[in-house]
Design a protein around this nucleic acid. Sequence first.
DNA 1: CACTAATCGAGACGGTACGTCTTGTCTTAGA
DNA 2: TCTAAGACAAGACGTACCGTCTCGATTAGTG
Lengths: 211, 211, 211, 211
Amino acid sequence: MTTRAGHSRHRRPGRPREEATEQAITLAARQVLADRGVARMSMEHVAARAGVAKSTLYRRWPSKVELAVHAVAAVFDEIEVGDHGSLAADMRAGVDEAARLLRDPSTGGAYAALLAESARDPEGVGVAVRGSLSTRLHALVATSVERAIGRGEITPEMVDVDLLADVVVGSVMHRALATGVPDEAFVDGLIELLADVAYARLSRAARNAGT
Amino acid sequence: MTTRAGHSRHRRPGRPREEATEQAITLAARQVLADRGVARMSMEHVAARAGVAKSTLYRRWPSKVELAVHAVAAVFDEIEVGDHGSLAADMRAGVDEAARLLRDPSTGGAYAALLAESARDPEGVGVAVRGSLSTRLHALVATSVERAIGRGEITPEMVDVDLLADVVVGSVMHRALATGVPDEAFVDGLIELLADVAYARLSRAARNAGT
Amino acid sequence: MTTRAGHSRHRRPGRPREEATEQAITLAARQVLADRGVARMSMEHVAARAGVAKSTLYRRWPSKVELAVHAVAAVFDEIEVGDHGSLAADMRAGVDEAARLLRDPSTGGAYAALLAESARDPEGVGVAVRGSLSTRLHALVATSVERAIGRGEITPEMVDVDLLADVVVGSVMHRALATGVPDEAFVDGLIELLADVAYARLSRAARNAGT
Amino acid sequence: MTTRAGHSRHRRPGRPREEATEQAITLAARQVLADRGVARMSMEHVAARAGVAKSTLYRRWPSKVELAVHAVAAVFDEIEVGDHGSLAADMRAGVDEAARLLRDPSTGGAYAALLAESARDPEGVGVAVRGSLSTRLHALVATSVERAIGRGEITPEMVDVDLLADVVVGSVMHRALATGVPDEAFVDGLIELLADVAYARLSRAARNAGT
DNA sequence: CACTAATCGAGACGGTACGTCTTGTCTTAGA
DNA sequence: TCTAAGACAAGACGTACCGTCTCGATTAGTG
């Protein structure tokens, strides 16, 4: 639908969209999101902060939630997944990063709010959330796992990436929002838990191989 | 449960609250919650459905969110934690129950929405959510763990109940809302993961004892 | 209906009404009336200010408006109609008094508000207002006129007391509320107007007598 | 009348207001006013009757009272002040018209209620009432008086238009609301009273001229 | 002295309206 | 065609009152 320039040399008729506008809106949305949370983020506020008319927002995103998804996705895009040399180190870095992100109430709250909207409208918002947000997080986990497989630390059978992603993100999110700040002790505990799983599977694999 | 001001024989002055009203409202709130989700649950609707004036709602709960917390807590109160004979069986029953509950978009969505509100207002809603909802879930996990300790299956040092609760509830919730329905395969995977943790810790304990 | 003691020696059964209560309420009502006007005078406020339960108010007056009528009537009862020696002097004193009273927004506004309610409910409030308030004002004018007749300054045929009362009270009220403060110039002008009427009628009477 | 920002060709930005809306609201307001009086006129009702959202009402009038002022002013605007040939005839017509208008409880009551509100909020409502309603009535009286001066029936020194307006409107209003219906006898009496004033002043002027 | 009958304070209750806020759509002028 | 500005219908929010009601506690007179 959106003919995001680039490959298409055919310009659409009429006045072209202001380049700066989309970024200004996204930035404004993230700020309002941080200030007031998803529920209290209003299109009116975002438009005012971006110095843009409300209709411009609706021309680009069909609803408030979609804009919120877009704005949160922009936050998630900043996550770096460097190679830290070992599965253990990668895992710690990943969990730390997740904790850092979700500890911020504006990001954690926004993510939870969008998950909630997902539940209400699985086909509309749900698809957008899954497509834009959850797959991003999933990809981060997958990258680490694949790297570990590449290094020979584990085998593909040992890990269900989907499950692992849900466990890591879900645990951290629940800790951040429902129980308390995910402090270092919590991160350590979660890492240890995952390490124990790896240990159990590796030792079982070794035993099986030994047989 | 509420020991109204110490002496339970001293009634509060004024006309006593209608017994039936609170239940009618809670029921209506749960229905509206299921029908339309937290965001679209309106006090107006709840009042109408309960056959009660809006002011009666506000006399009992300071805001929509607090009523929603109460209504969701009522759902959580129905969870049964029976003794299934072994930690493994208890765990499976617990995870199954969590999956059953959160799979329902109205419950899962409501829970996520309330967590999101928690992030926006940690002192008000946050306290209510933690006090009413999260501690309930925590208690369920704690019960199973204590039973396992009683049976001698594990020792207290082997498990951080707080962490375990976040892992179970968080993973299931994230699966339910962000990734897809938490089907039997997912539940199996999660159980296996937890079992592997137990295996690792038990074998390590055995090794230490052996030394 | 109300067996206001005195002639009836039979007391009503049950606990008698607190003597002080009625006065406390009336006073509180007048204060709230002065503070916030009739429209914003609330039974809740009056009760609180009088240190009395709302039901006590309703036990004595059937509605807010009736209580307001009672409270304003209490103000009107304080009006003194002394004999100033001549019709002119009595008239000036009367108009001055009316101006003094209605100039106070709380009294003037209350009176107007009650007249407005009269229009909405002529049989209920209207009767109360006419019975308690308007007749009081009418009586004041009548007293002055009768005194003037007694002194031989005018004859009964020369003046329609009803009309005169409406003219004096109505003019002053309208000036106070709609046009501006009824200052000395206004009072002078009104007196002069009435004096001219008297002049015209006296001179006509003299001419007729001369014929 | 409203010279929107000087240049009348420069339109205000944004979607222009629906022409029909203001009239529909005014009409609905007058109907509700007539049905239920100012106190019971509700924005909700007016909006529903006008087929308009409540926010549209509040976009144009800051509060219920301001809309009521507007609606009553619309009634007053229908008053015709024709030339009836003589001061006496004009006066009779004017008083008749005032009596006709204020005899209707919905108009009389509304006017009184707005005067009452004026007393409560002299700067807000008061200014609106004086500006919209009282000056209208004043203008009607002024027109008749000026015509009489033009005809040479009276001289400007003989009449204080402000005072006269208060006397006519105030007397009629008080009669209508506080005392009883302003019937023909009342109107006759008031006219006669005014005529006597004119007689007194004319004869005094003649005497002075004769000196 | 118990009984009856009303009062009192307190506050719950069903209603109703307030004025505010937001959503998503629309309608204009101008770029 | 896009943009800014803002009108519009819809509808929920949380607050404030109204007038009624239901309590327990009080306070007389009557049997």
